[in-house]
Amino acid sequence: MFKQFIGWKFLLVTAAVLIIVGTIWYVSSLARKIEDEETRKVATWVAANRELLQAPDEANLNLAVEIITNNTTIPVIITDREGHIIDSRNLDTVRISHNPQYIEDELNTFRKQHRPFIMEIDARNNLYNYIYYGDSLILKQVRYYPYIQLMVVALFVSIMLIALSSSNRAVQNLVWVGMAKETAHQLGTPLSSIEAWIELLKETEGNELMATELTKDVDRLKLITERFSKIGSVPQLEERDVIQQVSNMMQYIKKRAPQKVVFTMHTQEHEMPAMISPSLFDWVIENLLKNALDAMEGKGSIDIFIESHPAHLIIDITDTGKGIPKANFEKVFKPGFSTKKRGWGLGLSLAKRIIDEYHKGRLTVKWSELGKGTTFRIWLRK
């Protein structure tokens, strides 16, 4: 499903890029054609003005007047040789009345857009007018259209990606919750049966040690069942001493770890109360410690640092294992990502879900270096 989602993202982005590139190319070509057409219209308009100045026969005069009056879209500013504005057409009259500098600003813009036409007034006296013109409103709209479409396409793609991501996350959540609750349900029945057999063992003399050890294993299975049953539901947070919780889990893992692994807890406080779900929080610490053990391959050290701050507390779990490449800092929390041959890639993903969603905290990779080790950080609100 994840690969399929990535495939859809790639297809959407590719389609969007093709649409944008194709549209920009087409609109740019269209804009050049419109610009050339407007240049020819201005040239015709200048020629018509020249005809009026030369006072031709009545037929040509009527044609020139018609050409001049038909220009209602292309803005034009006429200046003399010194650059003084003589006349203008098709400018915003409202802005002219409110801003005396408006025509000058437009003239400067026109000078940058197109080369002016020169219209001879009196060659003997060296009198010439310069005709400056700008882009019509239609041409401006055509040029701005790709950018508007770009924003629309970007918005569309963003909405689609968010929708697909939300849908994918919702499906994943359903799978998580369904698997967890089904596991808890399936474990419940044999546990009840095993407890009954343990009671029978206790009644038979000589089986006390066996019954005691089996009871420990059953209690452990009960704890696992409780953890799975709480996935997908809102856990009941309780005020607990985090130092004691972490210490208990450290001692539990220490008994099952190789002797060459040294566990050390560092804290300046005797007690750090915080609102947690004890069974789920223990699961997180257990996963992080087991992950550290796997990374060290039988020897090294695991240091746990617990710091208290006014509104929150921080738990850093540092190992001296093989480390994580920086590119995988975020990937290690993705479901299914694992560097172990027999790993399912669910431990860290579950741990992050428990801390981020159920405890409203943060679980991140604070530091890691290949060959030197890794530090996972838990941030909890008090």
Results as ranks from 00 to 15, higher is better:
36 D>P: 09
24 I>E: 10
169 R>V: 07
10 F>P: 07
110 F>I: 01
351 A>N: 03
305 F>D: 00
73 T>I: 14
254 K>T: 09
180 A>I: 06
172 Q>L: 11
229 S>P: 07
282 D>E: 13
28 S>W: 15
311 A>K: 12
232 G>T: 09
332 V>A: 01
320 T>W: 11
187 L>T: 06
189 T>E: 06
199 E>P: 08
321 G>I: 08
339 T>K: 14
252 Y>T: 04
290 K>D: 02
4 Q>F: 13
333 F>S: 03
15 A>G: 14
161 L>Q: 11
69 T>R: 15
38 E>K: 12
209 L>Q: 04
186 Q>E: 04
5 F>S: 03
54 Q>E: 04
50 R>E: 08
244 Q>M: 11
69 T>D: 09
63 L>G: 02
345 G>N: 08
378 I>Y: 11
28 S>K: 15
197 W>I: 06
260 K>L: 09
58 E>A: 10
264 T>V: 10
301 S>H: 15
108 N>Q: 14
289 L>P: 12
288 L>R: 12
381 R>S: 02
331 K>Y: 04
133 Y>A: 00
149 Q>D: 06
95 R>T: 10
203 E>M: 01
262 V>K: 15
287 N>H: 12
175 V>A: 06
252 Y>C: 00
80 D>R: 05
348 L>T: 02
142 V>N: 12
104 E>M: 10
258 P>A: 03
131 I>K: 06
179 M>L: 04
169 R>P: 05
375 T>M: 05
349 S>G: 05
113 Q>R: 15
280 L>R: 14
12 L>T: 02
361 G>K: 12
374 T>F: 07
81 R>N: 05
188 G>C: 02
109 T>I: 09
147 Y>V: 13
326 K>W: 09
254 K>C: 02
90 N>P: 11
348 L>M: 03
205 E>M: 00
52 L>W: 02
152 V>C: 07
96 I>S: 05
221 L>Y: 13
310 P>M: 00
36 D>L: 10
60 N>M: 13
220 R>C: 01
184 A>E: 03
5 F>Q: 04
362 R>I: 08
120 E>C: 05
132 Y>W: 11
42 V>F: 09
64 A>Q: 11
290 K>C: 05
191 L>T: 12
87 D>A: 12
99 N>E: 04
280 L>G: 04
15 A>T: 11
209 L>N: 01
31 A>Y: 15
259 Q>M: 05
377 R>H: 06
82 E>F: 06
130 Y>I: 00
63 L>C: 01
99 N>R: 08
